[in-house]
Amino acid sequence: MNSYNKIAACLECGCGISSQVYDYSHDYFGIPLCMPHQKWVKQQELFSTVPAMSLYFALKERGVPAQLEKFDGYKHIDIAIPQAKVNIEVDGGHHNYSDKQALSDLKRTYYSFLKGYLTLRIPNSLVKYHLDETADHITEMLDVNRERVARTKSTFKRF
């Protein structure tokens, strides 16, 4: 791919990146990242699963202000979207097969719910086989919710 004279930006921070950095990042990560964020992604690989990172970057490509491995004071969330009050957990099969894990997940979802957050649980297999469709549906849900909140705020009467 010839990327000469191409102006590119880091998907994570939006800073401009050179053609050489773009080409390396695209070849290695599949997305444009500046050098500091390439290092950040390599560090994240120690804490985050490949499916969670794949979904995170698919959402970022769609303009979703997501955060990877956000700590909420109680636990790490795979993908958080604080502005929308949505947490996304990308779960492997063990979340379905172990009753202890399932109960732990339910409790985590409950505690997030008490703080006003919705938790979406996305199976690894959905990310692996239907990444784009999954990211599109999540983005659409966020858009619908944003419009719903805006309508509610515009009809709210102040005293």
Rank of each mutant, 00 (worst) to 15 (best):
M1C: 02
M1T: 03
N2E: 07
N2Y: 03
S3D: 04
Y4Q: 10
Y4S: 10
Y4L: 11
N5F: 08
I7R: 10
A8H: 05
A9R: 14
A9H: 13
C10V: 09
C10Y: 05
G14T: 06
G14K: 09
G16W: 00
G16I: 02
Q20I: 03
V21M: 01
Y22F: 13
H26V: 06
D27E: 08
D27R: 15
D27A: 10
Y28I: 13
F29N: 04
G30V: 04
P32H: 04
L33T: 06
C34D: 05
C34H: 04
M35H: 09
K39E: 09
K39G: 14
W40G: 05
K42G: 12
Q44E: 15
Q44T: 10
E45V: 13
F47W: 15
T49Y: 12
P51I: 01
P51H: 02
A52R: 05
A52W: 07
S54M: 10
Y56R: 06
L59N: 06
R62E: 08
R62T: 07
V64I: 15
P65G: 07
P65H: 13
P65V: 04
P65R: 12
Q67C: 04
K70N: 10
G73F: 00
I77S: 11
A80H: 11
P82W: 08
Q83A: 13
Q83W: 11
A84G: 02
I88E: 02
V90L: 03
D91F: 03
G92E: 09
H94T: 11
H95R: 07
N96L: 14
S98P: 11
D99I: 06
Q101G: 00
L103P: 02
L103A: 15
L106G: 09
L106Y: 11
L106W: 06
K107I: 07
K107L: 05
T109A: 04
Y110H: 14
S112W: 01
K115E: 13
K115M: 13
K115I: 06
Y117G: 06
L118R: 12
L118S: 05
T119V: 11
T119C: 03
T119P: 04
P123R: 02
P123W: 01
P123Q: 02
S125H: 08
V127G: 07
K128R: 05
K128W: 08
Y129I: 01
D132W: 02
D132S: 10
E133S: 09
A135F: 01
H137I: 03
H137K: 14
I138E: 01
I138M: 00
M141W: 03
L142Y: 04
V144H: 10
E147V: 06
R148I: 10
R148D: 03
A150D: 14
A150K: 15
R151P: 00
T152Q: 14
K153Q: 14
S154R: 14
F156G: 05
K157G: 06
R158A: 08
R158G: 07
R158K: 08
R158T: 11
F159W: 12
